[in-house]
Amino acid sequence: MTAIRCINVCKTYHQGRDEIKALDHVDLAIDEGAFVCVSAPSGGGKTTLLNAIGGLDMPDSGEVWIGDTRIDQLNKGELAELRLRHIGFVFQAYNLIPVLTARENVEFVMEVRGVPSVERQKKSREILQEVGLEDLEGRRPAEMSGGQQQRVAVARAIVTDPSLVLADEPTANLDSKTSEGLMDLFAKLNKDHGTTFVISTHDRRVMAHARRLVKMLDGCIVEDIRQKGT
């Protein structure tokens, strides 16, 4: 079944007098349980595509579907609800809320969803164990390394079992060893939980993990490769 569909999606930004086509008639369909990398050079449109899929940014034209819901026609409240219930986000940087501990950050989405405290604590501890941070649950972001913070963000993204995880350059600020560990974690979660992953990157090592690689240039999809052996 198709998890994401983008039909003829266009998005243009204006910088002074310049017009930048961030998405130029993009058509894309991603199946449930897929592990997809979107790669592009800087300014290629990968973040804009992820933002459009995640309901963080509205396309100028075209349609964006998550499952059976056309999200480009939803209002702010409905989009917030969609993000809360169905999508996990991992951003490039500034992923965590500084005044909350690792466990509280993981619990954040559950708490906003109204999950009872006991269940929240149980799930967050399990997921922190899964990402190897069970000993750091009481630490605040400033007391953790970049890699540890990204893993907490991953834990938060998957703790509610979302159908889709969108990760925007999750390894951009990480060293190669930590990046490798994070991608292994994504792959494991994709395999174990059946979660659909869409990861934007221009890191070749990340791309190597993907079963499908979508390459973009100047807002257009220029290549869509199904990779084997990943």
């Binding site: 995640g54 609800e81 969609l82 993000r83 809360l84 500034y94 965590l96 954040f108 938060r156």
Partner: peptide, 16 residues
């Protein structure tokens, strides 16, 4: 600002 953006992105309602 970024933190508020993050909370909104994660699904927290503007009213919250």
């Amino acid at each position: 600002v970024r933190e508020i953006g993050l909370m909104l992105a994660l699904g927290m309602r503007p009213a919250s």
